[in-house]
Write a protein that binds this DNA or RNA. Sequence first.
DNA 1: CTGGATCCTGCCAGATACTG
DNA 2: CAGTATCTGGCAGGATCCAG
Lengths: 140, 140
Amino acid sequence: MSPAASAIERFTRYQSDDAQSAGPVHCPVRDVLDRIGDKWSILMIMTLATRPQRFSELHRAVRDISKRMLTQTLRDLERDGLITRQVFPTKPPSVEYGLSPLGQSLLDPMAALIDWADRRYSDIHAARVRFDGAARDVSR
Amino acid sequence: MSPAASAIERFTRYQSDDAQSAGPVHCPVRDVLDRIGDKWSILMIMTLATRPQRFSELHRAVRDISKRMLTQTLRDLERDGLITRQVFPTKPPSVEYGLSPLGQSLLDPMAALIDWADRRYSDIHAARVRFDGAARDVSR
DNA sequence: CTGGATCCTGCCAGATACTG
DNA sequence: CAGTATCTGGCAGGATCCAG
């Protein structure tokens, strides 16, 4: 049995259970993936993986996030226990964010995904070009 | 060096390059994750991991997706070369979707993530309850 | 059966200004 | 510095109808 098979099987069970039973679908996997699958969460986790950082540092590291979304993303991640937030009552105040042990435990599985993305990106890009080319051929 | 460190380092390099250079951010990792991070893609991949399936089968397997989004998700995945689409000119027509080799290569890294989600879900849930409780305490 | 096309809506997230 | 508050537009995505 391949390493993936067990996860697939488990996942399928969630799906079928949810699909059959009444009530809104509630699959732990979906729940978690919805969180870390959003636009900025993984970016934050990876950025904090290097070292704990303050709000402004994070903002500089990821320039194209708004303060609003930065705040929200950090709060959500803190809520899920993936990052820690430590306030220093200096003046002006400073806040340091860092990975919790739970957050660190996510690094390895996430690295596997990043590794995949990195290695397969050229394949994906090629597939896109091919697909778009074919679509254009059809349309003309 | 931990397995994650290399990925983190590579990722950070993308970030800094993108942040420094002009032009819109373009990080392969972000690009790929945006795709598989959307609401339905992973669900589709996992569902197709068991066996190739037809449009209606997929719709039944994931009841809470609309036809519109099912079509769109499948087309995007096909565009990226993750799934294959085979049309049988029967009548009425039937179309079978399946994982491409590239799609299958995603199963292992994705399984790692699902495994993590499954094992850590209770921790995350507990953290949420704790956080929300603390927030309530503050507000009253 | 497998979609495409169209209309319509909510909410997500960016911009901007303000605060402790 | 580290956020909040408010307003607003765009677009993701549902519902519905149509077509091959």
